[in-house]
Computed example of a mutant assay.
Amino acid sequence: MSPKLKWTIKGRLEIVYTGTLKSMERYTGYARLFHGDNLYGEGECIDGVKVGPWKHYHADGQLMQECTYNSKGKEEGVCRHYQANGQLSSEEWFLSGKLDGECRTWYEDGALSSLCQHDNGKRLESREYYPNGALRMVMQFENDKFKSETWYREDGSLWRQT
């Protein structure tokens, strides 16, 4: 019988352990985490830190998130989040725990909702779309600080710029 596993958040890391918070023993091995009777997440741990591919689930057992973690427990590569109906809701790319590359979100019907560009954790550009696919807004950033934004009406005409 495997030990009863628990988890806690420390900084940006989710630590998997056995025992109590006062006498926690960090877990190494394949972990299956439960919230009540429902499977919450599963994957490998080394010294309590998530490593490799992990999956997390909605209360009904439907896949909620799949991410890969590096040896320090930071997101590495693509992380995907799913709505309760199984539809992909977001996809983010990470490099050692920092957003890097494209991040996308989708409406429930699968239409693109937003697209962001990051470079080593710094935002470069963010675009939002209307449910019909028309561009709604573009935000530009310089050194991760807001630079400008342009808004469009659903028909594609310019609404305002700042």
Rank of each mutant, 00 (worst) to 15 (best):
Q117W: 15
K4T: 09
Y129V: 00
K6V: 09
G133Y: 11
K6F: 15
T8W: 14
G19Y: 12
C45E: 03
N143V: 10
D100Y: 12
G121C: 12
S113I: 00
C79I: 04
S114V: 04
Y27W: 13
K145I: 12
Y130H: 03
G97Q: 12
T162A: 01
P3I: 08
E44K: 06
G29Q: 05
E14N: 13
Y129W: 06
Y107D: 01
G41T: 02
N70E: 10
E125L: 09
E42N: 03
G19W: 14
H56C: 04
H81L: 06
R26H: 13
L13H: 15
G121S: 13
Y82S: 03
Y69A: 04
G11D: 15
G73W: 14
G121T: 09
E42D: 03
F146A: 10
S126E: 05
E91K: 09
N85P: 07
T20R: 07
D100F: 11
L63E: 03
S89D: 05
N70K: 11
S157R: 05
L135D: 00
L115T: 02
G86A: 10
Y30V: 00
Q117E: 12
V51C: 10
E42Y: 03
S148P: 04
C79H: 06
S89P: 03
L115I: 03
K22H: 08
R153Q: 02
H35W: 13
H118A: 07
L21N: 08
H118G: 05
S90I: 05
G77E: 05
D60M: 09
A31Y: 04
A59C: 08
E108T: 06
T105C: 11
K147Q: 09
S96R: 14
R127C: 01
L124G: 07
S23D: 10
L135E: 02
K6H: 15
A84M: 08
R136V: 00
Q161A: 00
R160V: 00
K10T: 11
H81S: 08
L39A: 02
C79W: 09
S2H: 11
A31T: 01
K72R: 15
R12F: 14
E42A: 00
A84R: 07
A31I: 02
V49R: 07
E154M: 00
E102F: 14
G156N: 03
E102A: 07
D47E: 14
K145Q: 15
F94H: 11
R26E: 12
D37V: 05
K72D: 15
M1N: 08
G133W: 11
W106D: 00
K22E: 09
Q161W: 00
